[in-house]
């Protein structure tokens, strides 16, 4: 078994509003909010790195769990916007956390990387032990904040999230996950030559079909329907896309947690940032199954199902910890 045991997150202090961006991209603040649902986002300071953001989120997660980094069996780090690609940030983050020679691996998949990390951790935790999954992004350095680059410039922000996956205790039991890759769309969404390139219409077209389809696949094989799930935690890509996914699944939009309004699209950090805020908000009031889903570069996408620990106990008759 694998459980989500603790979460943590960090966002930089600098707030960038739509009014701040409007002049740069040649639009109005109202237009930015209308097409994205975003009110503001955070930008990292010039001297901050993706590792800096990740360490702060990871430390908060470990502190919340009450364990030391030396107790971890593995670190998985997702980032599509690191300062360099090889080696990626995972090894530096592990060193700064004091993990010694414990394995630390990179998942260079924008937007969907944290979901991939959680799905891998779910499968590896029973044999590897405590696994820390981190998503960390400084997307503000990958956008073109001009009129020409407005479609990406208005969307993205910076931040980091972390989640601890444990083999024996937690507030959610990770039940099932399915991951997909379709390289035929790899050119649609990519970071190349230091810049994000996005064919927005094509990405939306693919994501709006693939997200509901993979969610339904995971739910159906666990004898659930979308209506049975009170909590949806999705990559915070665009508020309009989240609303569209809810409509396709025929669930009230309120069941899909959103914090994109405050942070924008933080790529692979967004799912874990949403998880941390959602958990802070719901406290112990997790009312049923939780469905995670994300879509990102590659193209990669997938879904993961979790049960609250008390529901797990009820369904399996075992103590979930």
């Amino acid at each position: 078994m694998a459980f989500l045991r603790a979460t943590g997150s960090y966002v930089p202090e600098r707030v960038v509003t739509n009014a701040d961006l409007a002049t740069l991209v040649g639009e109005t603040a109202e237009w930015i909010e209308q097409v994205s649902g975003i009110s503001e986002r955070r930008y990292a300071a010039p001297d901050q790195t993706v590792a800096d953001l990740a360490v702060l989120a990871a430390e908060r997660c470990l502190q919340s769990a009450g364990i030391a980094a030396t107790e971890l069996g593995m670190l998985l780090v997702s980032s599509g916007s690191p300062e360099r690609y090889c080696p990626g940030p995972a090894s530096a983050i592990a060193a700064r956390l004091g993990m010694g020679t414990t394995p630390a691996l990179d998942i260079p998949v924008g937007s969907a990387g944290s979901l991939i990390g959680l799905a891998l951790a779910m499968r590896l935790a029973p044999t590897t032990g405590q696994m820390l999954v981190v998503g960390t992004e400084i997307m503000s350095r990958r956008i073109d904040a001009t009129a020409e680059g407005r479609n990406t410039a208005i969307l993205f922000g910076d931040g980091a999230g972390a989640a601890l996956v444990s083999p024996n205790a937690g507030f959610l039991r990770l039940v099932d996950a399915e991951l997909f890759t379709d390289g035929s769309g790899s050119e649609m969404l990519r970071v190349e030559d230091g810049r994000l390139h996005m064919d927005g219409g094509s990405v939306i077209l693919r994501a709006s079909r693939k997200l509901p389809a993979c969610i339904l696949e995971v739910l159906q094989r666990n004898a659930l329907t979308p209506a049975d799930v009170p909590h949806y935690l999705l990559h915070q890509a665009n508020l309009n896309l989240l609303t569209k996914v809810a409509a396709t699944l025929k669930v009230p939009a309120e069941r899909v947690f959103t914090n994109i309004q405050k942070y924008g699209n933080t790529s692979s950090a967004s799912l874990l940032l949403a998880l941390d805020e959602w958990r802070s908000g719901v406290g112990q009031r997790i009312e049923g199954p939780v469905l995670f889903s994300a879509f990102g570069t590659g193209l990669n996408w997938g879904a993961m199902l979790a049960f609250p620990a008390d529901l797990t106990s009820e369904l399996t008759g075992s103590a979930a910890g």
């Binding site: 649609m188 064919d199 094509s202």
Partner: peptide, 8 residues
Amino acid sequence: PDSDLSAR
């Protein structure tokens, strides 16, 4: 098909 899901 998926391979034709391009905005262009």
